[in-house]
Design a protein around this nucleic acid. Structure first.
Length: 430
RNA sequence: CGGGGCGUAGCGCAGCCUGGUAGCGUGUCUGGUUUGGGUCCAGAAGGUCGGAGGUUCGAAUCCUCUCGCCCCGACCA
């Protein structure tokens, strides 16, 4: 992509309405723009990041054998009456009336809708376990949205729902989902901690929050220091260890009754980007989602639901990965892998070399943003640092004349002048 | 919803207290200049001062109402 043709508006000034780093940077780097309180436009670069995260989530969910579906954003109120959540959900739920005065809601979650799909088709235990998931925009009319997409009213969420014949089986499914979560966060390249969370009225130990560790996080996590030494790779072994180690959200943690000695206790700040929990037959009973079990009896299914805040994760990643110059994208989600800076458009050799590099990278489907704008070198350096692409290929007249470029790593700040051949060898096949 | 704050040029802000021809920085456009960290110079365009009503000879400024946005609290992927 050539920047001169790309809609990627960067802002030098810090927007007045943004308080936290991720919000400021998302606006300044041209990822999002505010439509109204808690609702945002997604501009090209922001959309690319969103899609990259979605893709990783989808791949890991599909790999585990989960089925992706898509629930409409609008849902009829009947289902919510049926599950007895219609009145309980309160003002957070956006209610809309159509021309026939029929009331609809803009879905804040989809337990009812998914249960409705499930009960229509699945009649036998032989079809279980089943996990259905979607990635869809949700709306929760928060009293006070804030921090940009970190806590917006409209947000993109991956929500999954599991159906099992027994609590034991449901527990297995829960673990399976947990493994996919660990894999997802690992691929994104951030330290995400699964932390035991409040299970609400159901009780038991089957609820975890996943938090991206960031200084600016709003939640505090308490955990056994053994956690720090654990390398999570998603194996069953690790999962067992993980489940055994003490961890708790700040609501759950109680210094008095904490099961581990104080010298073993650690705490960190984090941003919640995932929450999974088991809720048993809560909805299957009220909504009559039953299957025939082995003995020929109708049995309500046991369920759990599993969320990942996809749009929030964009902000959370930035909170965890930025510096004073701008965003520092992990390669896994970066809008482009490479930024190519032409420092002097008017210099024939420089521009020729840039065009060559651009063509070669494109040919091998490397995502590259070529800054071919008629801007000064300083502006290009600043903008490129701001948008945070992992690799910068800097081409100026002096180096161009010797067929050399400067390669800069955004994260480490390391720079090296290398030959064009060296550049190709490093990143390209042919 | 309670408490606080802000709406003036695309963006960031001053002017308001004490009413009298709407300003600064930046960005945009034009010409020149510069070219490894947002160069410099000159010129230009751009605002019904969030909206409505009122007071006044005269309102960005004073009064009333209203809409929007931000921050703190209770809620949350």
């Amino acid at each position: 992509m050539k920047w001169s043709k790309y809609f990627s508006p960067t802002i030098k000034e810090i927007p007045a309405d943004a308080q936290v780093a991720s919000h400021q940077l998302m606006l300044r780097a041209g990822l999002i723009a505010q439509e109204c309180a808690g609702i945002y436009y997604w501009l090209p670069q922001g959309l690319k990041v969103l899609r990259n995260i979605m893709r990783i989530v989808q791949e890991e969910q599909d790999k585990a054998g989960f089925n992706e579906i898509l629930i409409p954003t609008l849902q009829p109120t009947d289902l919510w009456q049926e599950s007895n959540r219609y009145d309980g959900y309160g003002k957070e739920m956006l209610r809309i009336k159509d021309r026939h005065d029929r009331e609809l809601i803009y879905g804040p979650t989809a337990e009812e809708a998914v249960t409705d799909i499930f009960r229509r088709y699945v009649k036998s235990y032989k079809d279980l376990p089943m996990v259905l998931y979607q990635i869809q925009w949700k709306f929760r009319d928060e009293i006070r949205p804030r921090f940009g997409v970190m806590r917006g009213r409209e947000f993109l969420m991956k929500d999954g729902y599991s159906f099992d014949i027994s609590e034991e089986a449901a527990r297995e499914t829960y673990r399976k989902v947990m493994k996919t979560y660990i894999a997802i966060f690992q691929r994104i390249g951030l330290q995400a901690m699964p932390v035991r969370a409040d299970t609400g009225p159901i009780g038991g130990d089957l609820s975890h929050e996943f938090l991206i560790v960031a200084e600016t996080g709003e939640s505090t996590i308490y955990y056994d220091k053994a956690f720090d030494d654990l390398k999570l790779d998603g194996s069953d072994d690790d999962l067992d260890k993980l489940m055994a180690i003490y961890s708790a959200t700040d609501e759950l943690h109680d210094a008095e009754s904490c099961s581990i000695p104080i010298e073993q206790l650690r705490y960190k700040k984090g941003i919640e980007i995932g929450h999974i929990f088991y809720f048993g037959d809560k909805y299957s009973k009220t909504m009559n989602a039953k299957v025939m079990d082995e003995s020929g009896k109708l049995s309500a299914v046991y369920s759990g639901s599993y969320g990942i805040g996809v749009s929030r994760m964009v902000a959370a990643i930035i909170e965890a990965s930025h510096d004073e110059h701008g965003i520092v994208w992990p390669e896994s989600v970066a809008p482009f892998q490479f930024g190519l800076l032409n420092l002097k458009i008017a210099h024939e050799q420089t521009t020729k070399l840039c065009e060559d590099i651009y063509a070669c990278f494109q040919k091998e489907n490397k995502t590259i943003l070529y800054d071919d704008r008629k801007e000064g070198a300083g502006a290009k350096f600043s903008d490129m640092d701001l948008i945070g692409l992992p690799w910068q290929i800097i081409v100026g007249p002096k180096n161009a004349e010797e067929n050399k470029v400067e390669l800069k790593n955004r994260k480490t700040g390391e720079r090296a002048v290398i030959s064009v051949e060296g550049l190709y060898e490093r990143f390209l096949q042919g």
